[in-house]
């Protein structure tokens, strides 16, 4: 028998509210990390200019600015991958919760 949804209610079930809150935290948390690190790149043209112009080792021509550019791209991809895994996990939990809810609704 297919699982049917209960009608949408203005009041969210506590478990569902918790899932949505958790997702919001994830979304805004990850976005904040990206924005802060991204903003840091502009500082390389201001207060952190000297640091960004320094080479990573005494003999290498690679400066911190270039290393930071590569680091940001790799880190953002990693963050996206982590988010994807967490979102998949959250979807699975949510789906089970919803199935339970639907079953309870059908029993009523």
């Amino acid at each position: 028998m297919p699982v049917t949804s209960p009608p949408l209610s203005p009041a969210l079930a506590p478990v569902e509210r918790q899932i949505i809150r958790r997702r919001l935290q994830l979304r805004f948390g990850f976005s904040a990390i990206v924005c802060v690190l991204y903003g840091g790149f502009a500082l390389g043209y201001g207060p952190l200019r000297e640091l960004f112009a320094k080479t990573v080792t005494a003999t290498s021509p690679v400066v911190f600015a270039l290393a930071y550019f590569v680091f940001l791209i790799v880190l953002f991809l990693l963050l996206e991958f982590i988010y994807l895994r967490l979102a998949d996990k959250s979807t699975a939990i949510g789906r089970n919760t919803r199935a339970d809810e639907a079953a309870a609704y059908a029993d009523r």
């Binding site: 990850f30 270039l66 963050l79 996206e80 988010y83």
Partner: peptide, 24 residues
């Protein structure tokens, strides 16, 4: 040289935010 990469980073950094905030 390096300053050209400002545009590379700018063109890349919107995508994580698209994933986190908008895609779903």
């Amino acid at each position: 040289g390096f300053d050209g990469l400002i545009f590379g980073l700018g063109a890349f950094a919107g995508w994580p935010i698209l994933l986190f905030l908008l895609s779903e």
